[in-house]
């Protein structure tokens, strides 16, 4: 069923001119992104800038009004199942079945992602170690702390070893210690695939990413590699923060 039309380049994610109207006065406009293997892109923006909506469109959970998303060469519109098989997505609320136990939940997720039945135990094992979940694998998800839940959410996105990893504010609500752990996992995961993660914290993006894209009012207003000197980016972001309250009052 999955035709072999994908090109073999390492361009894992390609979004062209994504457009989506959200309400009469809010929309996502012409967002284009391109990521290769090993890219970790930080989608930086204030709350309400359109980060979550952009990630929803990239993950296939929201259909854009126009524009196209390609995952490893498969179009999200024309070959949705093949494209979705190659993404891992952690929404801003982790999609967890609170009554399930961690291991059983990850097994279910692997099944839904069409992981070969014989490989499921091994893949679940790998992701349990990767996300440090062995200590809680027999507990019900509902009993876990916020930090653990977030990690189970991340494990769910990684279990089928996707090409593209999409994380919506993965370190939201974590304490500094847990944040460190999350960054380590993202960096590890990023070496083998393409990662996009959204955040409203500049220093977090700088700590993890090799590229940063700034979203503001539904537009991509800046995109650059992270180098030692990020003064321009910092100024830009500080200006945005200053602008924001005025915009809200206007």
């Amino acid at each position: 069923m999955l035709s072999n039309t994908a090109n073999s380049t390492d361009k894992l994610l390609e979004a062209t001119q994504l457009h989506r109207r959200l309400s009469p006065d809010a929309q996502i406009e012409s967002i284009s992104l391109s990521l290769q293997r090993g890219d970790v892109l930080g989608l930086l923006g204030l709350n309400g800038a359109g980060k979550s909506t952009t990630l929803k469109m990239l993950s296939g959970t929201l259909v854009p009004d126009s524009g196209e998303v390609k995952i490893s060469g498969y179009s999200m519109r024309d070959e949705p199942l093949a494209a979705r098989q190659r993404i891992g997505y952690l929404p801003d609320t982790p999609p967890l079945y609170t009554e399930m136990r961690v291991r059983a939940y990850l097994q279910l997720c692997a099944k839904l992602r069409r992981v070969n039945k014989a490989q499921i135990p091994e893949k679940v094992e790998t992701v349990l170690s990767q996300c440090d979940l062995h200590s809680v694998e027999r507990q019900r998800i509902g009993q876990l702390s916020k930090g653990f839940r977030q990690r189970v959410g991340l494990a769910q996105a990684l279990v089928h070893e996707p090409d593209v990893l999409l994380l919506d504010e993965p370190s939201n609500g974590l304490d500094p210690n847990q944040m460190q752990g999350m960054r380590r996992i993202i960096k590890e995961a990023g070496s083998k695939r393409a990662v996009i993660f959204s955040t409203h914290l500049l220093n977090e993006a700088q700590a993890v990413c090799n590229r940063i894209a700034v979203v503001h009012q539904g537009r991509l207003i800046h995109e650059a590699d992270v180098t030692g000197d990020n003064q321009q980016l910092e100024e830009l972001f500080t200006n945005l923060i200053r602008e924001q309250p005025q915009a809200a009052n206007a």
Binding site: S59, P80, P91, T93, L112, R113
Partner: peptide, 10 residues
């Protein structure tokens, strides 16, 4: 809010 799990799965 677990529908996202299905919607992003193949």
């Amino acid at each position: 809010q677990t529908l996202a799990l299905w919607q992003s799965s193949p």
